[in-house]
Amino acid sequence: MRIKKWHKWLILSTLLVGGLSLSGCAGNSGPAPVTPSPGTELSGTFSIVGSNTVTPITSVWAEDFMAINPGVRISVSGPGSGAGIAALIDGTTEVCQASRKIKSLEIEQAESKGVYPYEIHVATDALSVVVHPSNPVSELTIAQISAIYTGRITNWSELGGNDAEIVAISRDTNSGTHVFFKEHVVQMQGLPTEDKSLEYGPNVLMLPSTEGGVSETAGNPNAIFYPGLGYITDEVKPLGIQITADDISVLPSVETALNGTYPIARPLLYYTDGEPEGIIKAFIDYCLSAEGQLKVNEVGYVPLP
């Protein structure tokens, strides 16, 4: 009898929770209120799949665009740049968002399936290098950061900081950011000291999310991490970056990324099959418009010049 009572209670509460969440979903997914709008009414559905990094700004654009055009439904998901490109190649998404450029192997695969990726630069992301606020180090050269991430410098005292072991934190290989940081900082692409054979050291922590890296840095006095500009909080301290020891150090900000003095910035891209048309073109036009680029600033990325 006891068991039965318990089970009944469990089942009841499960049903209740399930029912509530279902009704909640139903409430949200109901048809959007139709507001009379002048001119031609846009309608249709498409999806944007790809980079985790681009997802925050894409979501804002999609929400605003859907608010302006109630007939349009856009679904946004961020499993990773590679997954997005694969989805574009397989025709399961109309737009791919990416934080890295499409690779030649992927272009070949796409063309063999009759898909011709068309690249659109929609915003820029400045990668900051952050440490715990108590860390006395406030600027580093790219070569020094490279030495930290390759494991050649392992103690903060070698950089004028406390005598403590450095905890170098990175994103995992899922992330376009991982690849970008490796090429432009670890391997020092474009600098005289460039070395293509450099790799992340084996003791670097590979974390699955940028938020996770920031919270670990906020709680660990010896940690260093590279989040995008939009992810910096008051609990971490961004470092000034010197290209070489002779250059002045530049703090990451929208201004320094726009005027080109901040060295670690990268494009955020959309890929479509051929030039965009119809509602997708209208959406991308909105993203690139002055209003859309204003949102870029609000989310914490760098708008197009």
Binding site: S81, G82, E106, Q109, T173, N174, G176, V179, P208
Partner: peptide
């Protein structure tokens, strides 16, 4: 899990 999202298919 940390690699499959960005891997080039095939």
């Amino acid at each position: 899990a940390s690699g499959i999202g960005n891997a080039v298919r095939g």
